[in-house]
Design a protein around this nucleic acid. Structure first.
Lengths: 222, 222
DNA sequence: CATGCGCCGTAACGTACGGTACGGTACGTG
DNA sequence: CACGTACCGTACCGTACGTTACGGCGCATG
């Protein structure tokens, strides 16, 4: 809904409005991390040292601002896709653990928690598709990035499963468990670097126990 | 915060105010299931055919009403704890599947989704402990109800694990996977009776593959 | 029958916030 | 230098909603 205005700003290459735009969206992320109740248009304008008029000119309305913020944050997170080289058991394990670590770091970050909370609030109100955008850039994005690794491992005879999507969902469940819902509901849970590494290791090991093709013929369907 | 008023109402046994209270809270649940944006104090009063004055007298404020609603809903859900008889592999499998089915039904119900959404919204605002109450009656309640079964199965030599809590969290992850977060974010996902039964069966099988003591010595730590 | 209490329905109040309008300023362009 | 453009800061408007106040009714009690 704010795309027109954005494009118009982008097509004016002489100015650094693109960078300014990022500053504004960073201000939104800051405010969000400090508690979603503080996220008013006036607060954003104050924090970003811009006028409300500019906010509405650039983003259309509040939902447009939030949508742009979600996409802005997603554009920062995109990291490491699987690049296929030779794949052995160790590389597979390392790849899975790396994905698990990345995902756990994301869902336990203040920013992600705050963003998911507002998106959930919007999903409750039916209006706008913020929830869909968050899903597309979170859960589904990581799924699409992990699947190539899973399928390459299956081709290499390291994993056994029928349905890639189902296999990914199993891995997802083993990694995230109850962490995300507890964090969203305000449970104080630490998630230090060490906890994340340990969780990633455990989840990977469990996933390999279920779907690893190594000497274990007990991997039934997905 | 509204408990004083509630107790006062309860101590007046001559009236059916207790039943009336339930009607009011059911009205809140109805409204909630129709979309969280419709949940205003006026709407509740209209739906429940009571005055706003009564709402505030009984529940103190909006948060008190929401808190009472969460507890009211929780009091309806409490179902089937494990009752120990002789436990063999079949009974264990049946018990785990039953828990999985119950939990999947809960998290995919419109009521639970709506309640979790408002609780998450409150957790974002820092105020009140709605999130804690939802967690206590949801995630933690089912954990405490499942643990006796897990430990009885371990005592019977059917399961192997070190940490009961960790074992439960693994089961939780295998059952819920990405379902709850997707539903909260507004993803249209069906979850028919058949899907739920199939998910429960799969999760149970995977859990037994990881922690079953039957002829599988590959169950490392929790 | 008179009294009082609890509750319904509704009007009213205060505030918070999304959205708009406007004056003032800096800057790039003719 | 005159002009237009983009933007900041702020005042303003309308509305939604939580909360309170009030008039009227039904009912239970003495």
């Amino acid at each position: 809904m704010s795309s027109t205005v954005q494009d118009e700003a982008e097509t004016r290459p002489g100015r650094d409005s693109s960078a300014r735009r990022g500053e504004v969206l960073d201000a939104v992320l800051d405010l969000l991390a400090e508690g979603a109740d503080g996220l008013t248009m006036s607060a954003v304008a104050r924090r970003a040292s811009c006028s409300k008029e500019t906010l509405y000119k650039w983003f259309g309305d509040r939902d447009g601002l939030l949508t742009a913020t979600v996409q802005w944050q997603a554009s920062k997170v995109r990291a490491g896709a699987y690049e296929n080289g030779r794949l052995d058991g160790l590389a597979l394990r390392a790849g899975l653990e790396a994905y698990a670590v990345t995902w756990l770091k994301v869902i336990s970050s203040r920013t992600s928690i705050a963003l998911n909370r507002v998106a959930i609030g919007h999903a409750a109100s039916g209006r706008s598709n913020l929830g869909r955008i968050v899903l597309a850039n979170g859960r589904f994005a990581i799924g699409e990035r992990l699947k190539p690794l899973l399928e390459a491992a299956r081709d290499a005879g390291l994993l056994a499963f029928d349905d890639t999507e189902a296999a990914f969902r199993t891995f997802f469940g083993l990694v995230a468990r109850d962490v995300q819902i507890r964090l969203l509901l305000g449970d104080k849970i630490r998630m230090s670097e060490g906890d994340i590494a340990e969780d990633a290791r455990r989840a990977t090991e469990q996933f390999l126990a279920l779907h690893g093709a190594r000497k274990s013929p007990a991997n039934r369907r997905a």
